[in-house]
């Protein structure tokens, strides 16, 4: 007897559906030309500078302070967005109240509102003579043209990420588990912190990471309210724009590379969180 031919390892499983070559080729061409080639230009520029060149730019006091502000404030803003995002997601999935659907739609506003529009609106609201800014000034807080303003803008743009990553998981929680916990004598607080919250932690962390990454890279909604004082309220993306306007492509690329590096680490962290969550809880 002749052995049946061994199945060859193929790149693609056979299918009766046509069009793979055409659509796959077109996808790769677009991806290559629009995304990969330009990003490769940045990688090429950065490797031309070398690690020492990037380090030289990063340790420049003005650049270092801009990076510190971008990452530091974004961390705080993402934390705030996560806490309030969780609250909003909980209220929207668990409670029924008039206007709930409207509130749910409002959450996506920062996705839909162009960043420049959000930027000038926030700046005029929080300016010392603005609607909110005047009240804050009475309390001795100056929001506009300080890191507080950057914080407010970053919470604004980060909030939808925090809400939308947690919301579907809260909806999926089996109510019976909570009832079991209550029947076994746990107080509501114990049930929430020991039964409900732990499986939601990966989603909260993912939302946090997404809000953080968005905050670090954000430009339009921040620059108007920040006032852009060097060493005080100047963010890293703005410094890239300034370096470009001085035709300092190297300096701009160095800052961009540092920012890209951090966002890849954040992306990696998200994937690790999700892989861990899949092992631990069986879902993302």
């Amino acid at each position: 007897m002749v052995d049946p031919p061994r199945p060859k390892r193929r790149f693609r499983q056979p299918s009766v559906i046509p069009g793979f070559g055409l659509t796959f080729g077109y996808t790769l061409t677009c991806l290559g030309l629009v995304v990969l080639l330009p990003l490769a230009a940045l990688v090429a520029k950065a490797s031309g500078l070398g690690l020492s060149g990037i380090w030289y730019v990063a340790t420049d006091p003005r650049v270092a302070s801009a990076l510190k502000i971008s990452f530091g404030v974004s961390l705080l803003a993402a934390l705030t967005a996560s806490v309030f995002g969780f609250l909003v997601a909980w209220v929207l999935t668990r409670y029924r109240f008039p206007g709930r659907k409207l509130v749910d739609a409002v959450v996506d506003l920062p996705f839909a509102l162009p960043t420049a529009v959000a930027g000038i609106a926030l700046a005029s609201l929080y300016a010392p003579n603005g609607l909110v800014g005047a009240q804050l000034t009475k309390l001795g807080i100056q929001a506009a043209y300080t890191p507080v303003g950057i914080f407010i803008a970053m919470v604004f743009i980060g909030l939808p990420f925090a809400v939308r990553t947690v919301q579907p998981l809260i909806a999926e929680i089996d109510k019976e588990v909570e009832e079991a916990s209550a029947t076994l004598g746990a107080t509501r607080w114990t049930t929430l912190t020991r039964v409900v919250l732990p499986p939601l932690i990966p989603a909260v962390l993912t939302g946090f990471a997404l809000a953080f990454a968005r905050g670090v890279g954000e430009y339009g909604s921040i620059i108007f309210i920040a006032g852009n004082l060097p060493y005080v309220s100047e963010i890293a993306p703005l410094l890239i724009v300034i370096k470009l306007s001085e035709f300092d492509y190297g300096g701009a690329s160095a800052i961009a590379t540092i920012m890209l590096g951090i966002s890849f680490l954040t992306l990696l962290a998200i994937n690790l969180i999700q892989a861990w969550s899949r092992r631990r809880f069986g879902y993302v």
């Binding site: 940045l42 430009y219 470009l244």
Partner: peptide, 8 residues
């Protein structure tokens, strides 16, 4: 970051 998208 949008700014980096322009930069490239």
């Amino acid at each position: 970051s949008p700014v980096v998208s322009g930069l490239i």
